[in-house]
């Protein structure tokens, strides 16, 4: 898998596995379907969605992704930037 370069525009998948049954997800609900920019690749880690059920887990790239809170929430809000760890399988390059 090619790594996403810093500066790449990405969209977080608008997927809701928790609504379909038992799940453990590290992608916060408020980012689903949102666009952000890759800050950097943090490393590769086993997929917690599988570890949580003691299943064999693929090693996946983990990125720090920057989001603009004004695109997520209406005012009043005071964060300038949101910076969140997101696993590669949740990201689509735009």
């Amino acid at each position: 898998m090619t790594l996403l370069a810093p500066g790449t525009r990405v969209r977080v998948r608008d997927d809701w596995p928790e609504a379909r049954g038992e799940a453990h997800i590290r992608t916060p609900h408020y980012l689903r379907g949102r666009e952000g920019v890759v800050a950097r690749h943090l490393g590769d880690f086993p997929n917690p969605e599988d570890l949580a059920f003691a299943r064999p887990a693929a090693i996946l790239p983990l990125y720090h992704v920057r989001f603009d809170p004004s695109a997520i929430w209406p005012p009043p809000r005071s964060a300038g930037v949101l910076l969140v760890e997101i696993f590669g399988h949740w990201l689509e390059a735009r």
Partner: peptide
């Protein structure tokens, strides 16, 4: 409510 989704799991508290 923006940022609020009925499919959200109850522990997933950001911005709720």
């Amino acid at each position: 409510e923006p940022g609020e989704n009925p499919k959200r799991a109850h522990h997933d508290l950001g911005g709720v």
